[in-house]
Design a protein around this nucleic acid. Structure first.
Length: 282
DNA sequence: AGCCAGGACGGAA
DNA sequence: TTCCGTCATGGC
């Protein structure tokens, strides 16, 4: 199916680092002249839950490899399709040249609504780690402990294993995934969820601060990881995860403090613009 | 070769 | 409270 939209760029979303299973399936077209290739065509594959979705973008035109009913049932909300990101961008201080540049660079980013359990585990892995390796760790977990599926294009993919599955494993089982010290966090977290000691079902009902506190009960989940889960899975767009890139941004460009009051209720969206910009220009 | 990565944790000061 | 050492691994 076909959609047209402003403020939506699959490549930027892919590179924004919020979803580790949205990746290009082919090398992005490179213009040998070195100039801007406006007709670039990039294809991506996204795996979420039991589903795989192919996406292709050309300018503002986007193709999604799903039926209309699937779109309405799931993907529309997943991509936060009906939110007007132009309104968020318009709220940015015109004097704030840094954030204006960040928006120019990553204005097509959206905050997705990702499955809670996958996001919990993914961002436990993310700590003190780099994005390429985070992706490898996640794919390793999925290919070893997830379910194999056919994507209908002759390729297979693997679902993200649920908490009960991971809770059933031993520390040695995790060794090949090369998770380092994070494996014990994941095992302990999976067991808390599987035992019912942590109820993920009711987390979406909680307001931001309560959800954050609750998530921080999980081993390996501190304030930063909890904020990522709040932002990327629970869609609390006021959550503002502070990682090393954001620390740099705050130090270099907001020495007097970030204007949270101006962006009350949606600072997390600016956080993503800042993170994307800060990590790309380096 | 060496610094760094979307930090969390336990203990010390 | 804040600060510090430690944790495991590999990307670049």
């Amino acid at each position: 199916m076909y959609r047209r939209a402003k403020n939506f760029d699959i490549g930027q979303i892919s590179r924004s680092g919020q979803c580790f299973r949205l990746n290009p399936v082919a090398e992005p077209a490179v213009n040998p002249e070195g100039g801007e290739d406006k007709k670039r065509r990039e294809e991506y594959r996204l795996i979420v839950g039991k589903q795989a979705l192919y996406l292709k973008q050309e300018g503002e035109e986007i193709w999604f490899s799903c039926e209309e009913s699937e779109w309405e049932k799931f993907w529309r909300l997943y991509f936060d399709w009906d939110t007007d990101y132009g309104a968020f961008q318009a709220a940015v201080d015109p004097e704030d040249t840094y954030m204006q540049a960040a928006i120019r660079s990553g204005g097509g980013i959206r905050i997705l609504r990702q499955p809670l359990w996958e996001t919990v585990v993914s961002f436990i892995i993310s700590q003190q780690n780099n994005i390429p390796r985070i992706k490898k760790c996640i794919e390793s977990i999925c290919s070893r402990f997830g379910q194999e599926c056919a994507d209908g294009r002759g390729c297979t993919y693997y679902t993200f294993p649920d908490a009960a599955r991971l809770a059933s494993l031993s520390p040695e089982d995790f060794a090949p995934c090369r998770l380092g010290y994070r494996s014990r966090y994941i095992l302990a977290t999976a067991r808390m969820v599987a035992q019912g000691e942590m109820d993920l079902q009711m987390l979406p009902e909680l307001p931001y601060k309560e959800a954050r506190e609750e998530l921080m009960r999980l081993p390996g989940v501190g304030k930063k990881v909890a904020d990522c889960i709040c932002l990327f899975a629970l869609h609390h767009i006021e959550a503002f995860p502070v990682d090393t890139h954001i620390q740099t941004m705050l130090r270099e460009h907001y020495p007097k403090g970030f204007p949270f009051d101006r962006y009350k209720g949606f600072a997390g969206i600016l956080q993503q613009y800042g993170f994307y910009y800060e990590s790309s220009i380096r």
